[in-house]
């Protein structure tokens, strides 16, 4: 058993644990925005860890480059996707968690009613 294999195993397990935490978060959090908060970064970190594990486990330049390119791509796109869903949710007027402390963002014009299941 080599150090490289051990490092890959640790990274893989860290990534899987983070992914599990994201799933737990999406189930437990009270509203869309907190759920997005929980999933968008946890899933970014999970994908980063697992792709790094791949890059380390396969001792190959091509695989390592592709895995690192995938990590860069995830870093570029994950916040965009989260931002798009968050904006859409706010524009639709999805209700905020009642325990929300402050809301300094104006509600969308036209007073859209929240539609739980269109």
């Amino acid at each position: 058993m080599s150090v490289r294999e051990l490092l890959a195993a640790v990274l893989m397990l860290a990534g899987v644990a983070t992914a599990f935490l994201a799933a737990l978060g999406v189930l437990r959090m009270p509203d869309v925005f907190t759920r997005l908060s929980a999933t968008s970064k946890a899933s970014t970190l999970a994908k980063m860890c697992i792709f790094l594990a791949l890059a380390i486990a396969f001792d190959d330049l091509g695989v390592a480059t592709r895995a690192l390119a995938a990590v860069a791509f995830v870093f570029l796109t994950a916040p965009l996707a989260a931002h798009a869903i968050g904006r859409a949710a706010f524009a639709l007027g999805v209700p905020l968690f009642p325990g929300t402390k402050v809301n300094e963002m104006p509600r969308p014009q036209g007073n859209v009613q929240a539609d739980p299941d269109p």
């Binding site: 999970a46 994908k47 697992i50 639709l92 999805v94």
Partner: peptide, 28 residues
């Protein structure tokens, strides 16, 4: 469970992340 459509989209997004993780773990 939903309850709103954006909630389900958040779920689908996470589902795809988990799918990617499964494929990567199968590679390992």
């Amino acid at each position: 469970l939903g309850p709103s459509l954006p909630d389900r989209v958040v779920g689908l997004d996470l589902l795809s992340t988990l799918g990617i993780s499964v494929v990567a773990v199968v590679a390992l």
